[in-house]
């Protein structure tokens, strides 16, 4: 049977619109799903932080167990903070040097980071732009050390600190972090992308080698400097195992080590000469942890741009 379709009777516009709506709907579903997953992820990640802040305002003796979880403290108090900082402790008790812990954390976050920026960028510049014998071999030797897991060198490094008589000194705390292979590698990759002609132009323009480095190369390496700075600071501030390993006196503790030392005899490092905490005094520890988290959070919000850049640098050039 002859079946004729009248083309004019087809509503093309309607078909197009339906198709458009279908694609749009599909795209919306995709976006919504992505948002749901990311939001869940964000909540799961932020929950411990939130719990830490909330619990730091709970009264002493309140249960911290999961059954008694509270999403906001019913009766907030700042006594955990006062107790943690021992603001109202009697004068005859030798106090925990919390201020010192923060200072030590600041030192371990700042000094190795600054030194890393200086030495790693210099080494990176030399490997990227200077000509000298065995350059490739030296570069590969440096890169190969990246293959060795940090945990493997921890014990030899610890022994070394003993041999240098640096154990339980600031040297042990700070010195091993003064230059880093990863930093050298990243600086080399980044500086390599600068046109060599700029450096040669400066050389012809009668600039000395240090001047070329400080006036031309470093200013043009601002992105990588910021990224390395931010990551170095956060890494240093949060570092725990190495400071814990090489320090004994609580005057050398970083805030992270100090906090775990509050876990009492059964927990982390025993704190000699100061008050130790029972399991009930989690509140104080959470108060300390909340304070310790503040610098990192501030840095994160201020320098978010560079942190994201840092992640992509790793993705593109790593």
């Amino acid at each position: 049977m002859d079946k004729k379709i009248n083309i004019r009777s087809i509503d093309w516009e309607k078909i197009q619109t339906e198709k458009f709506i279908r694609t749009k709907r599909l795209r919306n579903i995709f976006t919504i799903t992505a948002y749901i997953i990311l939001t869940t992820w964000a909540i799961v990640s932020l929950l411990p932080m939130y719990w830490m802040f909330v619990c730091s305002f709970k009264h002493i003796g309140v249960s911290f167990s999961i059954e008694d979880i509270e999403f906001y403290p019913s009766n907030p108090t700042n006594e955990n903070y006062i107790n943690f900082l021992q603001l109202d402790a009697p004068p005859w008790i030798s106090k925990r040097p919390v201020g010192r812990w923060f200072l030590n954390s600041l030192l371990i976050a700042l000094l190795p980071t600054i030194s890393n920026l200086i030495f790693d960028s210099m080494a990176g510049y030399a490997l990227a732009k200077m000509r000298f014998p065995m350059k490739q071999a030296i570069f590969w030797a440096i890169v190969m050390t990246m293959m060795i897991p940090e945990i493997v060198i921890l014990i030899p490094l610890y022994r070394m600190m003993f041999d240098f008589k640096w154990y339980n000194t600031y040297w042990a705390l700070l010195f091993p972090g003064f230059a880093g292979v990863g930093g050298i590698f990243l600086f080399k990759q980044s500086i390599e992308s600068l046109p060599t002609s700029i450096i040669e132009a400066a050389r012809v323009d009668a600039a000395s080698e240090p001047k070329i480095f400080f006036k031309i190369v470093l200013p043009l390496s601002k992105p990588i400097l910021s990224v390395m700075g931010v990551f170095g600071f956060i890494g240093g501030w949060n570092s725990y195992f190495w400071p814990y390993l090489v320090t004994e006196s609580n005057k050398l503790y970083t805030i992270q080590v100090g906090l775990t030392s509050l876990m009492g005899a059964g927990g982390g490092a025993g704190v000699t000469g100061t008050l130790t905490f029972g399991i009930d005094e989690y509140g104080q520890m959470l108060a300390g942890a909340s304070m310790a988290a503040i610098p990192v959070i501030i840095i994160f919000f201020l320098l978010q741009k560079y942190i994201i850049q840092g992640i992509t640098i790793g993705a593109l050039k790593g």
């Binding site: 002609s197 700029i198 132009a201 400066a202 012809v204 000395s208």
Partner: peptide
């Protein structure tokens, strides 16, 4: 180069 009293114009200009 700095002791040669020369100046150079580069192909890509090499401006800072």
């Amino acid at each position: 180069p700095k002791e040669r009293n020369i100046a150079m114009v580069f192909q890509d200009y090499a401006l800072y």
